[in-house]
C-alpha cells in the first residue's frame, strides 16, 4: 500500500472516531436539554399546595390532587388485574411446559405480538370491550384493565426470566426429597424468583404511568376527585396533554405536572436498577 493511501485510511479512522463520539454527545445534550427544560419550567409550580388542591379554571390554576389520586387508582387496578395472570402464566411457561409444547409456544407468540400493539389500539379495544361491551363506561376500572392488558407481556417476560434464573439443582434436590411440585413452587421457586418479579412489576408500572393514548377513551377526562372505581378519572399524562393542547395558558401547570411525572418515573427507574443489581449477584 502506498504511503498516501495508508495515511488516508488512518484519517478515515480518525474521522469515524470523531463521528462516533459526537453522536452520543449530542444525544446526551438533547436528553439534558429536555430534562432541564421540564425542570426549569416546572420547579416553580411545584409546592405542597399544588399536590393537594383541586384544579381550577380548567387546570390553569390550582393543583393536581384528584389527578394524582386517579392516576394511582388506575395503576392499582392495573396491577391487581395483571399480577396474578402474569405470575400464573410465567410459572406455567417456565416450570410446567416443555420448550416445544404447542400451548406454551402459542401463548409466547401471542404475547410477542401483544407487546408490539400500539397504545391507541389498546385504547380502541378498551373502549369497545371494557367501556361498552362490559358496560363499565368511562371509568378508572376500564382504564386500569386496559393498561393491565398492555403491561402483561413485560410482567410475564421478567417473571419468567426470574424463574429461569433459579438454579436447576434447587428443583432436582426438591424432587429428590419427594416434595410435591406445588410445595416446591410455593416455598422454593417463588421466593427465589421474587426479585425478577419485582423488576418486572416496576418496569410495568413505568410503562403504565407513562401511558396516555390508551386512557383517553377508557378512563376519560374528568378532573374531579373520583368517588368510586366506576368514576371517570383523569391520569397525570392526560392532564399534561389536555393542558398543553386544549387549554390556552395551561403551559405552566403542564410543566409542573410533567415534572411530577418525570420525578415519579425516575424513582421507579432507580428502584428497578437497584433491584436489578441486587438480583444479578444472587446466583453468581
Amino acid at each position: 500500500m502506498s504511503r498516501k493511501a495508508s495515511s488516508k485510511l488512518i484519517n478515515l479512522d480518525q474521522l469515524f472516531k470523531v463521528v462516533i463520539w459526537l453522536i452520543p454527545l449530542s444525544i446526551t445534550a438533547i436528553f439534558i436539554w429536555i430534562l432541564s427544560d421540564i425542570v426549569i419550567g416546572g420547579i416553580g409550580q411545584i409546592s405542597w399546595a399544588f399536590l393537594t388542591t383541586n384544579p381550577l379554571d380548567a387546570g390553569r390554576d390550582g393543583g393536581i390532587a384528584p389527578i394524582l389520586v386517579s392516576t394511582f387508582l388506575i395503576l392499582a387496578v392495573c396491577l391487581v388485574a395483571s399480577v396474578p395472570i402474569s405470575i400464573g402464566t410465567a410459572i406455567l411457561l417456565a416450570e410446567f411446559t416443555p420448550n416445544q409444547n404447542w400451548f406454551g409456544r402459542l401463548v409466547r407468540r401471542s404475547l410477542d405480538v401483544l407487546a408490539g400493539v400500539p397504545s391507541i389500539v389498546f385504547g380502541l379495544f378498551g373502549n369497545a370491550f371494557f367501556a361498552q361491551t362490559l358496560g363499565l363506561g368511562f371509568s378508572i376500572l376500564s382504564g386500569g384493565l386496559t393498561l393491565a392488558c398492555m403491561v402483561l407481556p413485560i410482567l410475564i417476560r421478567s417473571t419468567e426470566a426470574g424463574l429461569r434464573a433459579v438454579p436447576q439443582e434447587y428443583r432436582l434436590n426438591s424432587a429428590a426429597l419427594g416434595i410435591s411440585k406445588t410445595s416446591t413452587l410455593w416455598h422454593l421457586l417463588l421466593p427465589a424468583a421474587t426479585p425478577g418479579l419485582l423488576v418486572g412489576l416496576v418496569l410495568g408500572l413505568g410503562r403504565a404511568i407513562a401511558e396516555t393514548a390508551a386512557l383517553i377513551f377508557t378512563s376519560g377526562y374528568v378532573d374531579r376527585m373520583p368517588t368510586s372505581l366506576l368514576d371517570s378519572g383523569r391520569s397525570l399524562s392526560i392532564h399534561i396533554f389536555d393542558l398543553s393542547m386544549n387549554v390556552s395558558g395551561g403551559d405552566s401547570n403542564a410543566y409542573g405536572s410533567a415534572l411530577i411525572l418525570i420525578l415519579i418515573l425516575l424513582i421507579i427507574n432507580a428502584i428497578a436498577a437497584w433491584l436489578g443489581s441486587k438480583y444479578n449477584y444472587l446466583y453468581d
Binding site: 395472570i85 410446567f96 401463548v107 400493539v117
Partner: peptide, 23 residues
Amino acid sequence: LVWLLRGLAAIAGAIILLILIFL
C-alpha cells in the same frame, strides 16, 4: 395447580385474539 396456571396463561394468550375480534 397446572390447570389453574393453564387457565391464567390462556387468558394472557387470548387477549391479542380478543383485541382482533373486537376491532
